[in-house]
Nucleic acid binder design. Sequence first.
RNA 1: GACCCGGUAGCUCAGCUGGCAGAGCAACUGACUUUUAAUCAGUAGGUCGUGGGUUCGAGCCCCACCCGGGUCACCA
Length: 533
Amino acid sequence: MTSTPSSKRTSSNSARQPTDEHETDMEDLSQVLRHRREKFDALRERGIEPFAYNFSPTAVASDAIADFEAREKAEELPEDGFSDRVKIGGRIVGWRDMGRSIFAHIEDSSGRIQLYFKKNLLGEESFETLGLLDISDWIGVEGPTFRTRTGEVSVQVESYELLTKSMRPLPFGKVETDPETGERTVHSGFQDTEMRYRRRYADLAVHPEVRETFRTRSRIVTALRSFLDAEGFLEVETPVLQPLYGGASAKPFTTHHHALDQKMYLRIADELYLKRLIVGGLDRVYEISKDFRNEGLSRVHQPEFTMLEWYQAFSDYEDQMDLVERMVLHVLDEVMGSRTLKLGEHEIEVEAPFRRLGLVSGLSEALGRDVHEMTEEELRAKAEEVGAPDLHGAGRGKLIDKLFGELIEPDLIHPTFVIDHPKELSPLAKPHRSDPRLTERFELYIGGAEIFNAFSELNDPVDQRERFEAQTALREAGDEEAQQIDEDYIRALEYGMPPTGGVGMGVDRLVMMLTGQPTIRDVILFPILRNEE
RNA sequence: GACCCGGUAGCUCAGCUGGCAGAGCAACUGACUUUUAAUCAGUAGGUCGUGGGUUCGAGCCCCACCCGGGUCACCA
């Protein structure tokens, strides 16, 4: 071999002139992508279709391994050590070419399994074609399982077919497994957070643990549904496009309906529609919905997020605290199989009943004096003293809330119901039956974050109108998030809404807590990012 | 929105006081029929986020912008 292969390749490259658009594209591709394209063309030249139509596996990888080990343990393996033939489909994630034999790993939904290709078993042509395969291609293989000399259960491939040629390599890190501890070390993988979110498909393909997080998310949502279904709740769907927005304090996304020539808003909450259903006699309803708030992004905020809200006639917020406790424990038992939560450095045991802490009484205790006795000026001075930000135009209620947020909230790691909020903070909540300055409301904090928010729902239409009007005054004073007056909702209350307890829950945040993910982006498949370019 | 940090090969990153653009892995060629971060020999691969500026000379200094991350603020 006199001329080196590389010099052959280089000369053929330089000889190629960009004669048409296809060639020009090829010139623009990076070297890595160009090589893939060349293999793709070579496969077609050999009459091999790079994009198959279907494949019927007889097993997934983990089952094939488990079956082999079971037969081995039962001493049912034949003399030669080869077990039954299996057909497995998966993505090539590792490749070790030994000349006349090749070891590879494929990965399917269940995990990885090693493949062993032998030239004298596959034949010259079939074995040569393996050279046109790459990491991240999808293949289907067939052959018996056996245990290699180094002890790994593998498939000895008797035949294989290309299912999909990958034209772009996935950034798999090399995985080193400690034979003693089984501990996995990933070498130079796919770390760039921006790319991981923008190209979630690649992130999922490369990181089994990311796939697992989203499987867990799905199981959590299923468990929430089955819990409410079993409690006699009806799942309903209410409008996403709304002529008015309400049910929360937030800035909306605005859009326009052309045929009606009408301004519309994407919902910021489901609350007012769901309570209309309670008026109508659907006495237990819930909705799992995407809500939209035109606000900043953070570790715990996305503009598009998933909310669960439910409303139960004849109940109050005490009843709902009981229900929430049972729901949280149900999800832990059903999905996590454990009542222990790992939240950063904290490891906490979740037990009912959760701690209950009066917002005003808790704050009074922390300050060493009765908050109700303090003037607005005193509250403001105190808030400034503890460094609470953005106090412009804050009234009593807001000041109390800010003080609570600064002094107490960060320590609410264990599940804690914060209860009985000041009236001006809660325009949709019923006045407290024993203190008219307060409302019957709770927020459940876990890991320092608010996850549930609930009230005994305000059902007095006269009071509701006054609360809306107070919100309108706030709006006119410049509070962009103050709620609008919803005449139709007041009319619904005038028909009569039975006593009702209602709860809203941030699904994404609950999933964060349960799966131990540090940011909300890690539990949302396609988090919002700014457009590329 | 404000502040801080970052953007260099397909991936992970280095690049000193401004002086020829680097490594590991991946890729390509060859050797190797039980390897597993395979190994060994060789080769190729770059709009240094973008646009200006300073300079004999800019990945590095200056200005503006784009994108991301973190922190803060608002909301769940």
